[in-house]
Design a protein around this nucleic acid. Structure first.
Length: 469
RNA sequence: GGCCCGUUCGUCUAUCGGUUAGGACGCCAGGUUUUCAACCUGGAAAGACGAGUUCGAUUCUCGUACGGGCUGCCA
């Protein structure tokens, strides 16, 4: 009987939600949600100078957009400093940690000398086994007593067994001289107290795992299952950085990628389930497991993201898609749409969603229903409204007026008209499109005719036939 | 410098000793077509390098190269 799964995402609030962080959060979320477990969120804000509430808010916002809901309250690591200190003191009392009075200058001098000689820069504190009686009345840090002589084996679900000799581990600091805890201590104590069973994080923490294991062992706490996932790189294979363009989850939101597509793409980046490429959240939750995570870093590919997003938009349920589209409009600062337009949009959703990869594309195709008469044709549309074309519109109008306003009837009417006038259908569709939408990127003319309705459509055609004459 | 991790088409990946090395995005060609797209068919495209183990290595081992991480009183 295995205990319930508890995972966590633990970002430091130094900026927006990084795309790599978003994927780490997604993996943790998927793992917990797929197993009926809990997904916790902890903000690692112990470095006060580099933490900001704005960054925390941005991270929360990014996760909300991606739909990565967490269980329980958001935990602030900083607020748990007392508990961290308590553990450090417990270790001190048990003789598993010690007070070190070495000054930072001394340590720095030691490292410089070691580097110069090409020797290990791991600091060996002379205070490790010192007598309390010899302790000066000076500031000190608390360091853990690193084990020696053996090997630390990190049993990693992604990387396999990683062995690190105890000699590679130093008597790391637990508590700074001002009494505040250091990150290594804080993570371990928090993960333990929060009951985290699976630590899924970036592999930049792989080496740290060995250091953290020293604390678990000293406290005789059970180890979590580790899974260190490779980082995401830029298109050039280098570590993702500012010059690679968009990095924040929020930027992708503002570019109009649907969250479902983003989740799908991110999940697929570094994780696989056979040949499955396009899948729903439900499938992802069911399929996701640590064994499917790859070992090598992946590069971010916008083209594939777009493709998947197009698939998700096309298969979205209309009402939900419309809601998300409206949320996108709000996010980019557009005004709310009046009810009439909402109704039209809802009617048009079926024909709009088939061919758009992002929300801006969806909106571009929807523009025909968002504008009001008189329509200002754009340059391309204007070219389709030359005198000849306007003539076509004029003579076509009666045929449309007489048709019952159904797709079949409209198709028949236009086909008949084109036929009897010796016109190719496209010759007529162009002007019609320009008249109805004032632009060239639109849904099919029949879709527009039906969505707009007889009166509005005929009025627009009439406008176009008469204008610019 | 020391320690650790990684390396299959351009990109994301499948393969858990025996395959014509598969799929997806992108790309190229063709088709469909009412604009932008979408869609359909076909095509080019890969095991970093070198040893070893084995009847047989992309797969296991070692080395080299390249990339990455850690090596803080940062997280």
């Amino acid at each position: 009987m295995s205990a319930a799964v508890v995972t966590r995402f633990a970002p430091s609030p130094t900026g927006y939600l990084h795309i790599g962080g978003a994927r780490t959060a997604l993996f943790n979320w998927l793992y917990a949600r797929g197993r009926g477990g809990k997904f916790l969120l902890r903000i690692e804000d112990t470095d006060r100078a580099r933490s900001s509430p704005e960054a925390s808010a941005a991270i929360l916002q990014g996760m909300a957009w991606l739909g990565l809901d967490h269980d329980g309250d958001v935990i602030s690591q900083f607020e748990r400093a007392d508990r961290h200190a308590e553990v450090a003191n417990e270790l001190l009392a048990a003789g598993k940690a010690f007070k070190c009075f070495a000054t930072q200058d001394e340590i720095e001098a030691f490292r410089e000398a070691a580097r110069a000689e090409g020797k290990s820069t791991l600091y060996r504190s002379p205070w490790r086994d010192s007598d309390a009686a010899s302790h000066p009345d000076a500031p000190y840090v608390i360091r853990i007593k690193a084990p020696s002589g053996g090997t630390m084996v990190i049993k990693d679900e992604v990387q396999g067994d990683v062995r690190i000799a105890h000699e590679q581990l130093d008597d790391m600091i637990l508590l700074r001289s001002d009494g505040t805890p250091v990150y290594m201590l804080a993570v371990v104590v928090d993960d333990h107290d929060m009951g985290v069973t699976h630590v899924i994080r970036g592999d930049d923490h792989l080496s740290n795992a060995a250091r953290q294991m020293m604390i678990y062992e000293a406290m005789e706490w059970p180890l979590p299952v580790y899974a260190h996932i490779p980082l995401i790189h830029g298109p050039d294979g280098k570590k993702l950085s500012k010059r690679h363009g968009a990095l924040g989850a929020q930027e992708y939101q503002l570019m109009g990628y649907p969250a479902a597509g983003m989740r799908n793409y991110l999940a697929r980046l570094g994780w696989s389930h056979g040949d499955d490429e396009f899948f729903s959240d439900a499938q992802a939750r069911e399929w996701f497991d640590l064994a499917g995570i790859g070992k090598s870093p992946a590069r971010f590919d916008t083209k594939k993201l777009e493709h998947l997003c197009g698939q998700h938009i096309a298969t979205s349920e209309n009402a939900a898609l419309q809601q998300e589209l409206l949320a996108f409009r709000t996010a980019i600062g557009e005004n709310n749409l009046p009810d009439v337009k909402l109704a039209l949009l809802s009617d048009a959703m079926n024909c709009l969603k088939e061919r758009a990869k992002t929300f801006p594309e969806l909106l571009e195709k929807a523009e025909f229903l968002l504008v009001d008469r008189p329509i200002e044709p754009d340059e391309k549309a204007l070219k389709s409204l030359d005198p000849v074309s306007r003539g076509i519109l004029s003579t076509l109008t009666p045929h449309l007026q007489n048709a019952s306003w159904t797709r079949d009837a409209l198709e028949a009417a236009t086909a008949d008209y084109a036929d009897s006038n010796g016109l190719k259908f496209g010759k007529m569709a162009g002007p019609l499109r320009a008249a109805l939408a004032g632009r060239s990127v639109t849904p099919s003319v029949f879709d527009m005719l039906l969505v707009l309705g007889r009166d509005e459509a005929l009025a627009r055609i009439k406008d176009a036939a008469q204008e610019h004459g």
